[in-house]
């Protein structure tokens, strides 16, 4: 079985400052992995390297058995929605269709997408229970709905990996719950990589945790302990989630 992501001896530095050191990790098909670490610790950098948006200074990255440039078309990526211009004139359908740009079936020019593109987009919207909102303006949606539109956009072209960057930032607790259900469902058919700074989120669902703070450690979720959190974030943890419960015995890595 080819791992969906395989990283060996990877180093990355930016303007002479080391951001990631000697990273080795492997993510299997249908894995659910959480990437945690403090802000500025290199989480986003790691994701950008996996997506081929940044070149590593040293080391190799294999994505679905190829280079990130070759294969990133098959990766679904969900960015933080807080980055979007709230006035942007675009509909839910328009956003979803962007997932089909330059897809396997050729280049899109002009105003219109092909019939198969539209069908794929409608199918993804249906799966996210957004079909009735397809014609609505993206900026009129709630935070949770926008999140689901961005997941739909990722799904129209992805079949093997879904990468989500801080999906729990700025959304309500009940939306967070439904996000979980969506991910549980999607995890049946694809690997999920989720970036978060919220450790309480991790152990409820994920099989393994990738801790990134310049160096990278991979743990099964059951190993998450106070000591580990302190190693990762240092002494100054100010916020602790009290609603966090681990299942009996925790999760066990394969």
């Amino acid at each position: 079985m080819i791992p969906v992501v395989e990283i060996e001896n990877l180093y990355f530095s930016y303007n002479g400052i080391s951001v990631l050191k000697d990273v080795n990790l492997s993510i299997d098909q249908k894995d659910s992995t959480c990437v945690v670490g403090p802000n500025g610790g290199g989480k986003s950098t790691l994701i950008k390297i996996i997506l081929g948006l940044l070149e590593p200074t040293r080391g190799t990255v294999r994505l679905l058995g190829g280079t990130p440039d070759e294969k990133r078309n098959r990766v679904g990526y969900v960015p933080q929605y807080s980055n979007f211009d709230p006035l942007f004139p675009v509909t839910v359908m328009d956003v979803t269709l962007m997932g089909r740009l330059a897809a396997q079936n050729g280049v899109r020019f002009g105003f219109s997408y092909s019939k198969s593109d539209k069908e794929a987009a409608l199918h993804a919207l249906e799966e996210m229970e957004l079909l009735q909102l397809a014609g609505r303006k993206f900026s009129e949606l709630s935070g949770g709905q926008r999140q689901r539109v961005l997941i739909a956009r990722a799904l129209v072209s992805a079949s093997e990996i879904l990468i989500l960057d801080e999906p729990t930032a700025n959304i309500d607790a009940h939306v967070e719950g439904s996000l979980f259900e969506i991910m549980l469902e999607l995890n049946k058919r694809m690997a999920i990589i989720l970036v978060t700074h919220d450790l309480g989120f991790t152990s409820q669902f994920f099989e393994s945790v990738i801790c990134v703070n310049q160096v990278v450690h991979v743990h099964p979720t059951s190993e998450i302990s106070g000591e580990l959190i302190q190693d990762l974030y240092g002494e100054d943890i100010k916020m602790i989630r009290h609603d966090h419960r681990c299942a009996a015995g925790g999760h066990v890595a394969d």
Partner: peptide, 10 residues
């Protein structure tokens, strides 16, 4: 709308 995503889409 989303330059980074467009780049990922090739």
């Amino acid at each position: 709308f989303d330059e980074e995503y467009a780049r990922i889409r090739g």
